[in-house]
């Protein structure tokens, strides 16, 4: 038996919007730790890792570890039927082939049940060891979204370089080139507006902008985004989900042969 009650239901709506274009079908795993998902995109270039910790739910009952295969497009359709202020409860029986999403309006005058069919998904789980990153950049998520959108009108690959000068986003295409440099700026009124660049070693890596743009669908979840770079590893683009967890996107670099 599984029953997860999330008072801030809009978080789950935003989470789905953040991953449904990247991944079609995925297994949601439920354990005493929380509600989680790890999935690769169909071309195995990017990976998304979601964790919503159990403490973040008002009520969290998960009698045994459960993996529920869902079509994210269909799940998104159902969650779009929940109001932004609604409380969302996810319910499932052990061994059942459906999941139920219950939406309660804040005044309790409207209660809706949506039952969705589960599916068997043969998904591969990758082990992602903790790593020391050469450089970590924290910036406003809206700024990162703007940069990815702007650069993708010029080229299809972004080179992200971190030096002691700052972080540079560059692209090149048929019509020309673009470079955007951000310098560390912590003298801001609101901490979420800061640009913080933690450089242990300079790093420069190339990534497909198509995926970066897809990751920025998570912008409504968090005011800030953290970009972790190491020359030997995929970039990690992380958005916090309120106080309860995160969405991390991993993207394999493009490498000169």
């Amino acid at each position: 038996m599984l029953e997860l009650r999330l008072v801030q239901g809009s978080l789950l709506k935003k989470v789905l919007e953040s991953i449904k274009d990247l991944v079609n079908d995925a297994n949601f795993d439920c354990s005493s730790t929380g509600f989680s998902l790890q999935a690769m995109d169909s071309s195995h270039v990017a990976l998304v890792s979601l964790l919503l910790r159990s403490e973040g739910f008002e009520h969290y009952r998960c009698d045994r570890n459960l993996s529920m295969g869902m079509n994210l497009g269909n799940m998104s359709k159902m969650l779009k039927c929940a109001g932004n202020d609604d409380i969302i409860t996810i319910k499932a029986d052990d061994g059942g082939d459906t999941v139920t999403f219950m939406f309660e309006s804040p005044t309790q005058d409207k209660i809706a049940d949506f039952e969705m069919k589960l599916m068997d998904i043969d998904s591969e789980h990758l082990g992602i060891p903790d790593a020391e990153y050469h450089s970590i950049v924290r910036m406003p998520s809206s700024e990162f979204q703007r940069i990815c959108k702007d650069l993708s009108t010029i080229g299809d690959t972004v080179v992200i370089s971190v030096t002691k000068e700052g972080v540079k986003f560059s692209t090149a295409g048929d019509i020309g080139t673009a470079n955007i440099v951000l310098r560390q700026n912590t003298t801001v009124d609101k901490p979420e507006d800061a640009i913080v660049i933690e450089m242990n070693e300079p790093v420069s890596l190339s990534f497909a902008l198509r995926y970066m743009n897809s990751f920025t669908k998570a912008t409504p979840l968090s005011d800030t985004v953290t970009i972790s770079l190491s020359s030997e590893l995929p970039v990690v683009v992380e958005y916090k989900v309120a106080e309860m967890g995160y969405i991390r996107y991993y993207l394999a670099p493009k490498i000169e042969e």
């Binding site: 990976l47 990758l126 992602i128 690959t157 394999a252 493009k254």
Partner: peptide, 14 residues
């Protein structure tokens, strides 16, 4: 520019 690597070039099946 560059060859797109796979995420599986970096992480192994758990």
């Amino acid at each position: 520019p560059g060859v797109q690597k796979s995420i599986k070039d970096f992480y192994r099946s758990a």
